[in-house]
């Protein structure tokens, strides 16, 4: 039996060190990718990405995935016959936009979109009036059920009509605010109760993280 030459042993040693170093590096990269940073409401790793959708806005304009590309979007679902949660949330989003008016990312790319899940009663023109009462920059859109599903399904948004007195009905709906990044990734799900301080902090943290993790 031959003893390996010192040179071979050295080469084997180098190869082993290199293998361990590479493995550790790869493992570290995987861990870094998968490690969820301590940012509340952040969806990470593997955030879902929005696909194609098309909804109607006032003036015959359409809200599509392209309307969200290149923007950081606060997305909220509701309906105008909603007397409490929807106006309250839009008022909070207005305060949030004010708080973020000095944030460079929000100034350059921030937007708020309200989507009505009650297309039978909410016409696009009236919807625009409704959201612009809170902030002239807010966008609003709706569409028939099949069109809404293009946006609600990937986000897991649920809505259902509930009868009230007479022919009136209310709509149960998901009240979380979704934060979509400029590449259409869902990076944040902000749950109730909505407060401007909490939302603006989440925006700063999540937009900084998203920018660092393209």
């Amino acid at each position: 039996m031959q003893t390996p030459s010192p040179r071979l042993q050295a080469n084997a040693g180098i190869a082993l060190i290199a293998f361990v170093a590479l493995s550790a590096g790869a493992l570290f990269a995987v861990l870094r990718e998968q490690q969820r940073p301590a940012i509340p409401a952040l969806i990470w790793p593997n955030p879902p990405t929005l696909g194609a959708f098309s909804l109607s806005m006032a003036g015959g304009k359409m809200l599509t995935q392209d309307s969200l590309k290149g923007h950081w979007t606060f997305l909220f679902f509701g309906f105008t016959h909603c007397p409490d949660v929807c106006p309250n949330t839009l008022a909070v989003l207005k305060q949030t936009a004010l708080r973020l008016s000095e944030d460079p990312t929000y100034r350059a790319q921030g937007q708020v979109v309200f989507v009505s899940v009650d297309p039978a009663r909410d016409q696009p023109a009236a919807l625009a009036q409704y959201v612009q009462y809170f902030d002239p920059n807010f966008l609003a859109a709706t569409g028939p059920e099949t069109a809404l599903a293009g946006l609600t399904a990937p986000l897991g948004v649920i809505h259902a009509r509930v009868p009230m007195t007479g022919e009136d009905y209310s709509v149960d709906h998901t009240a979380a605010i979704f934060l979509i990044d400029p590449k259409l990734r869902l990076l944040g799900v902000l749950s109730l109760p909505h407060e401007a301080a909490k939302l603006s902090t989440a925006f700063r943290d999540i937009s900084a993280f998203g920018t660092q993790n393209p």
């Binding site: 409490d84 949660v85 007195t165 209310s170 149960d172 009240a175 109730l192």
Partner: peptide, 18 residues
């Protein structure tokens, strides 16, 4: 129409009940 309602929230869903 004037009614007392409660906004109920659970699991991210919100609903109004009389």
């Amino acid at each position: 129409t004037t009614m007392l309602h409660a906004t109920l929230s659970s699991g991210g869903q919100t609903k109004m009940r009389g």
